[in-house]
Design a protein around this nucleic acid. Structure first.
Lengths: 243, 243
DNA sequence: ACAATAGTGTCTGTAAGACAGTATTCT
DNA sequence: AGAATACTGTCTTACAGACACTATTGT
């Protein structure tokens, strides 16, 4: 059998998870400390190999549940992003990875698993501003994913996926502020969110803060897209009203 | 070596191309008639296997050039979309495919290649309305890609990638109309497109139609995103002014 | 003159940016 | 009463939808 054309690459495929949440007003990402070579001891995105008979969405859900315990009952948003396929991106051989974005509400710290020494929420901001801290090409994957999320908040109702089942309009605005790293005007946000049919629906319940008037609790509405979109402000900076 | 955990899947990877253009006022896609099994004789998207030492973007460009002759000098827009990984999607074995979107101006019919009996532009509309005509899961890939393109025209300057280097504002509007399958008002389109900084720049030249006033020719500007976006009209139908 | 395409101007409605003011709770 | 948070209303500006009108070509 002669080599008339170059050989097809034989590869292994991993699904790597970018699990984002908002904690303490910051966008945070779940990172593990790798327990095996390569990059043993380095920070990395959780992930794992595609198995026989399984598609990538299934692999991603399996890893999400296995490495973090998330997804047993109430599966959050899980979305395939893109493929990273540089031939030398993994020293073990030809491994292409498919990045997945998972959005979770503020959850308790996840448990460590076999493959990872520890898993912890880490602020995304510093990782974006000074890359080089993550294994493989995970810096790039993280940066691409965060920008994707930011853009997606503009024209979908995805922000509610960062929230627990019941949330206030203030909670929802804090999601936008953390992901966009930008201050918003709560009063205009009220108007936008309530006028958008099907974005949020009131539950009738209220939640009292430490001090101040109790806020109405909402849950997600059926709408998936925002018409018209809620745009990040590209030109003028914003000032928080009450300070 | 015992089998403590399920085996990692060993896969081959293909890059499949969704090459779109606008011809005769219609959105058209380049399809090949398959020359080999499986699906011999069926219509399919062009594509091919990832090779050793090559990343997927390179493979996609290679296929684009090889199967269509496009991309030698002036490479059009080429963008990775998503992965299709159902375990049974290819009867030859475990093959996952990465879909790529390529946008081309109205070009002469491509030449047939070794792997494909023939390649031809085909109207996308009928394929979308009555699926089941394409090999593998290419119906799904095409549908996903067209919707992606439609959405992307809203907030990027991508439409200009469907145009030759010099084009009129009328040409550009016909792109939007063909991709969105929606009529637009040329006069409002003028305003939108000229007020958007960096979308198009006049060349100084003009192009005379068969009859009527010659139109100013433009080329692409540096802008990549549209602020604010140009939205498809989600509620009201539109009426073409001059008929 | 007329048809045909290119391009400008104007009116109007919708929605976003800015921000004053009112409401409801706790201490 | 005062502080803190929740929420409503109003003014203004930006921009899209609709459409009248002018400009420049060929026949």
């Amino acid at each position: 059998m002669q080599r008339a054309r170059p050989p097809h690459a034989i590869v292994q495929v991993t699904a790597d998870l970018v699990i984002l949440t908002v904690r303490d007003g910051q966008l945070q990402v779940l990172l593990i400390e790798r327990g095996n070579e390569p990059f043993k001891g380095c920070l990395a995105l959780p992930g794992g190999f595609l198995r026989d008979g399984e598609d990538l969405d299934t692999a991603a859900r399996r890893e999400l549940l296995g490495e973090t315990g998330i997804g047993g009952t109430h599966i959050p948003h899980l979305e395939q992003l893109r493929v990273y396929s540089a031939p030398d991106r993994d020293p073990r051989g030809r491994v292409v990875t498919v990045a997945y974005l998972a959005l979770a509400p503020n959850l308790p710290l996840p448990t460590a698993s076999t493959d990872a020494v520890a898993a912890a929420w880490t602020s995304a901001g510093p990782l974006l501003h000074s890359p080089g801290q993550l294994a493989f090409d995970h810096d790039q994957i993280l940066a691409d994913t965060v920008e994707h999320s930011r853009a997606k908040l503009e024209h979908t109702t995805l922000a509610a996926s960062f929230c627990p089942p019941e949330f206030t309009i203030g909670d929802l605005m804090h999601i936008y502020e953390a992901v966009w790293d930008q201050q918003l005007d709560l009063r205009n946000f009220y108007r936008k969110v309530s006028q958008t049919e099907g974005f949020i629906v009131p539950t009738g319940r209220k939640r009292a803060p430490d001090t101040g008037r109790p806020a109405t609790l909402y849950r997600r509405g059926p709408a998936q897209v925002l018409h018209p979109p809620m745009l990040r402000n590209p030109r003028t900076g914003r000032v928080r009203p009450s300070q």
